[in-house]
Amino acid sequence: MALMNIFEGLASLFFVLLFAPLFAGLVNKQKAMMTGRVGAPVWQPYYDLFKLFRKETIRAKSASFISGLSPAINFAAVIIAASMLPVCNAHPLISFKGDIILFAYILGTARFFQILAAMDIGSSFEGMGASREASFAIFVEPIFFFTLGSIAFITGFTSISDIYRSIAMDRMSYTVFIVVCSISFFILAVTECSRMPVDDPNTHLELTMIHEVMILDNSGQDLFFYQYSGNIKLLIYIVLETAFYYPLGAGLTAVGVTIFALNILFVSFVLAGVETVTSRFKLKDMPHYLLFAAAIGILNLLIFTFNK
């Protein structure tokens, strides 16, 4: 039984590591199709990563050991986070009481070093990106706790896989609660993975970028690690988002896996759709947007708590 659990955990970790670029490619492809372009093939992120891995690394002269350390720490952090994921309701590799806190904080470690590495260059561009990243990041953990954390506090489970297992959409009010939670979480995912209404991944002006500008001076293996970690992080958040809907029938059976895959596909479709119809917000308005997500969480929770 324990061996089976470990096997399931390893399988889900490899799933995330393997399919993370594919998911990014899928979103980009759909986005291109929605805007009437042909778009790059779905496998493009793999080609990009492979290319980056084999390239020469160029670093700024003002860079220090932080620039070398940060990509590795980033990657390690997302791997640890990925191994806590209940992919398709499987037993994750790392699961213990309170791992929801470790999950939130280990991504904080990644962010800490990413910001430092950006500031390491000493250029204003990176500074701008780092400052923006830091200021949006302060909302990330609160929203995380208002969504996933609120379920933890209500049900009493403190491990991510247990929390998701406890979700059952049998009551009307609970279903509404879960749906609104998932909406709030979607906003969080968009923020964390620097997708459209918060950050435009395809922008070409340094002044308007957030995540992209932080890795402006990275190349070769450094960039490879950043890009790959970014892809994994996106898939992590998407899996957590779909996990709200596991009661629809996702599980480790043929039907369950199909439902899970359809779930993921649907979210990629929604993500692409949102990116097509929205434009990036003004940077000044971003805190309001994030606060709105948090406010939804609070309201949702209030309504759920008092609806007895």
Partner: peptide, 18 residues
Amino acid sequence: ISKAMRKKFGFRESDAWC
């Protein structure tokens, strides 16, 4: 790993992009 890869595929320093 990235250190080894740097050795294999080359490494140089340059001015920051501005």
